[in-house]
Design a protein around this nucleic acid. Structure first.
Lengths: 350, 350
DNA sequence: GTTAGCACTCACCCCAAAAGAGTGCTAAAG
DNA sequence: CTTTAGCACTCTTTTGGGGTGAGTGCTAAC
């Protein structure tokens, strides 16, 4: 990374802080006056010029102040920023928001997203737990009509997932009950990611090979687990908070952003990027251009993985303009991720 | 309703049609030239003046043309408009959109909403079927942890509904299995709206009164059905289509509208209004001010109930600006409602 | 009852001028 | 060699006025 003289760092920091607050390019006088550096504006100007040469600042036009570039923001976030401590009252408020209301997992996830959006005043996002990281708890096969059955899967943590399956015309509910009893026993507590192999290996066994019931049961569940575990759901609440940022006051830009949100697959992709490297890290920040998704150039994600047991199973966070109050939002996101993790494990402790 | 002379009707109709197309107040010359009424613009002006006195038209400012008021639109919709027939190719396209993809009900509902938004170029909305109008099919009780169980309800049509329940600490999964077996037998095919009474009457019975198992099972299910059936879910797709309407080009107005969408409860309320009178009617149109919801003043809903069996169980539609091409959208909404009804009953016919 | 004609009203566009913010450069001071 | 004051310059934003065009209301004639 770029090495900066102490004073240059201070200037960059001041510019970023001011820019985050005001949303407008910052002039040299402002910095000189307000950030106690004890140098004249002319000196600041010289430094600014250097920082611009390094690609950390940008001048929208010749007679404007400077705004940080993505690179400048990145440097600030990685090396200069000090996260604020989250106020105890704020913690209490968040806790309270979790306490009242229903407790099933889906609702918990949605509520997390609402909480994030409310406390950070941006859009809150929560990616469903990766099903493949959860453990099998129960499957129920219900005949809905001739040739079609509904499969309802419940994970050990209480997550419900459903899917319609084509089955043979002559299968009865009784058959399905037998199938599910067998499967439930076979797969209890198996991580859903390993279910497929378990089924395949079971299919090799003697006792199975010649028993219609086993064969059919395994076939159905194989089809279920083949296609059922892929779709990732994501909850997005508080999109309209984005409308409050002056940088999106322009209708056209606004539309582009909101359209990006309509297509959840894109947001999933973004959150996926955040989940991957995060096993060990408390939070990941992706600035627009880093995402390499054209439609998300102008926004940024602050995210944190949440765990079930020991493993990070999903990710939640906040989406907003690149200009966000990172030092305030990061602790909120991390705290929320921690809370959600606890709630998944032992909801009564909260 | 107001009685209008034949020619006056024609003028009103022309104004509405032109306004719907252009989005701008219409002048007298335009009407005289383009709509073959064979009178001069001065005559049109006189008529316009009369219509304005009746509260059917409105002049945004002294030197502008006239736009229809809500009252004018209403009159047009109720008495003057002739719905276009839906082109066969368009029908085929909609059908196709239903054909490919998954088939579970939730997905079907969401897809309906997406289809509506795509073909009408507005926001598509689908209200979940009223659970109380569906029939009981299956319930599964799954112990998730000490003192808490997940109840998963499946309706006869394959709709899945879940809820977390507090249960006694000492209850085992075995107990829960017994409970659900009993409940499943008791309630099979009972309309969910009548389940509560059924449970209460069952509780009176001799054989039940003195059997812990029955008592506990009924107690659990009573609690489930008490609070579980109320929440109405709604799918809204294609909100960003609203951004294309020039009437929402203003950022502030836009924000207000989108904020109204964030709070789903409000949309549910709106759709509920449309569901009530609709048993016999093919479609209901609610213009903004008629909704009496402050935040929805500027938008309007075109909706149609969908059925399961004989009863209207839910409602779907399109939300857009008051200025919509009603004659085109109404048939699309009705067609989609019909299709969804068929899909709920016998998906293979499609 | 209908129409032509005319004066009048606004909204909108365009342009020029003024104001303001902030820079880069230079020369002098430390 | 670094820092600073001073100044000319650049570019955006705001303001205001004149011109244009769409559309009306009213009146008088048909």
């Amino acid at each position: 990374m770029i090495e900066l003289a102490d004073r240059d760092q201070k200037v960059l920091e001041a510019i970023v802080i001011d820019y985050i607050e005001s949303g407008e390019p910052v002039g040299s006088r402002t910095i000189a006056k307000r950030y106690g550096l004890n140098v004249s504006s002319a000196t600041i100007r010289n430094i600014m010029c250097d920082l611009e040469d390094l690609g950390l600042l940008l001048q929208p036009h010749a007679s404007a102040g400077r705004a940080p570039t993505e690179k400048g923001l990145r440097l600030y976030i990685d090396y200069l920023m000090r996260s604020k401590r989250l106020a105890e009252e704020e913690k209490a408020l968040i806790l309270q928001a979790y306490r009242d209301g229903k407790k099933d997992i889906q609702e918990l996830l949605r509520r997390s997203s609402a909480i994030l959006s409310r406390f950070c005043r941006q859009a809150g996002v929560v990616l469903w737990p990766r099903l493949r990281l959860m453990r099998f708890r129960h499957i129920e096969l219900i005949k809905v009509r001739q040739g079609q059955a509904l499969a309802v899967l419940v994970s050990e943590s209480g997550l419900v997932h459903q899917m319609m399956l084509d089955v043979d015309e002559d299968i009865t509910q009784d058959d399905l009950d037998k199938y599910s009893r067998y499967i439930n026993e076979l797969l209890l507590n198996v991580p859903l990611g390993e279910v497929k192999e378990r089924i395949l290996s079971e299919m090799q066994k003697e006792k199975v090979l010649f028993d219609q019931l086993y064969v059919r049961a395994l076939d159905i569940s194989r089809r279920f687990f083949q296609s059922g575990l892929n779709d990732a759901e994501v909850y997005i609440e508080g999109r309209t908070n984005l409308l409050n940022s002056p940088e999106f006051a322009d209708v056209d830009r606004m539309r582009r952003i909101l359209e990006a949100f309509e297509d959840k697959a894109r947001i999933v992709k973004l959150l996926d990027m955040a989940l991957r490297p995060s096993e060990s890290v408390a939070s990941t920040i992706i600035l627009g251009p880093e995402s390499e998704l054209d439609e998300l150039q102008e926004i940024s994600l602050i995210s944190s993985p949440y765990r079930h047991g020991e493993t990070a199973v999903g990710v939640l966070g906040v989406i907003g303009p690149m200009r966000m109050d990172y030092s305030r939002i990061i602790p909120i996101v991390e705290f929320t991720a921690d809370l959600l993790s606890q709630l998944l494990d032992e909801p009564d402790q909260i």
